[in-house]
Design a protein around this nucleic acid. Structure first.
Lengths: 205, 205
DNA sequence: TTTTTGACTTTAATTAAAAATTGGTCAAAT
DNA sequence: ATTTGACCAATTTTTAATTAAAGTCAAAAA
């Protein structure tokens, strides 16, 4: 369908603006201009700005999971899988940093309830993906049996929390220092190593 | 010294106001009134508002460490020590929540650089305390040898990060739900259990 | 000398109104 | 089915006026 591909086109152009200038500083008029159509026409494809933002985020979620799957097809153990996932996370976080942070400081023109919902959805997707990695580890005999839902949930929150800790330090500046994203993923990997170790089944000697 | 005890008195009254109304909504005039002295006299004891805030925070840090030491004198293993520390953290965080959060959204009348410094100091103190717990665990033979500085550092950031994750959800409301603090400390304890497990030395069989 | 204060200055927060921008709508055109 | 110019309502941004609070100081009180 032509409508569908035009929607994709709009989503990608919106993503560019959101990640360059943030959500609030990107107007529907500008996005329309970028696509060579009128603002009114934009509203033929998306009912409101919130819907467009959500479409962009869902696009990003799907994209990052595809990237991970391509890359992690042959990873054998839990630690390498999680490290690969952390790398993907870092790349997307660094690339679309402004989109991420401006989600938290959104305009009143955006529907905060819907934005909260999509954030919850994103986290549940991440927890689901972590679950499947842990699940595999349990079935391999690599990890002890555990409450996989609760464990992956807390693991995701640990990653998220570590990112927040280091990002909050750079909040005064307009954009964070280049090294911050690397610092975050390094800390996340260090934490992951200890965390996975704590779930590891002891080899019988 | 009378001056010293008067300072202590001012610190305690300021702490009450800071934790009830936040730092920004507490004026030096009000603190002076609470102590039955003029505002000008307050500036005889503290050079500026920032200095008073810092004195209050240092008081709180010392107080919480004393509480921990009293309580954890006979704790034997690493996990119970860290859990005891998490409980102390929770009590102080809940009690002085508004002081904590208003530190991050401070007025321009406060010296942000000095405030950042005291926050860094607080974290280094916490890291030091965690270090001594881990150190003891290593010497007990309970934990493997490790880079204690780096490990305690990341552990403190995990605790801090988990708190940030759950607090950020309640940021829209004026004050967070009652259960949030319990949720945070429960998650912190769960993470701690896995974390300590990951540092545990394997018993020879 | 140490402590205290009233009166003062300066800086920052708050408020209110005006102007500009932007999200969103709709009938009509293609 | 798609597109648009013209339009409205709501929001943000700007500006200036007002208020309030941080911080100072010479002089008094202890």
């Amino acid at each position: 369908m032509a409508t569908d591909s035009r929607q994709q086109q709009i989503i990608e152009s919106a993503l560019r603006r959101f990640s360059h200038f943030g959500i609030n500083k990107t107007t529907m008029g500008e996005i329309a201009e970028d696509n060579g159509v009128s603002k009114a026409n934009l509203y033929y494809y998306f009912p409101d700005k919130t819907a467009l933002v959500i479409a962009v985020i869902k696009h990003l979620i799907a994209d990052s999971y595809n990237t991970y799957r391509e890359r992690a097809a042959d990873r054998a153990n839990v630690l390498t899988c999680l490290n690969a996932w952390i790398d993907v996370r870092r790349e997307y976080f660094e690339k679309y940093y402004l989109l991420h942070v401006t989600l938290g400081t959104a305009d009143n023109s955006l529907n905060m309830e819907q934005l909260t919902n999509i954030a919850t959805y994103a986290q549940s997707m991440e927890s689901k993906m972590t679950s499947s990695i842990l699940e595999q580890g349990v079935q391999n005999g690599e990890l002890v049996t555990m409450d996989i839902g609760a464990t992956s949930n807390i693991y995701v929150n640990i990653l998220k929390g570590l990112a927040m800790v280091y990002i909050s330090c750079e909040m005064n500046k307009d954009l964070p220092e280049l090294g911050t994203f690397t610092t975050i993923s390094n800390q996340q990997k260090l934490a992951t190593e200890i965390f996975v170790n704590g779930l590891r089944k002891q080899k019988k000697q």
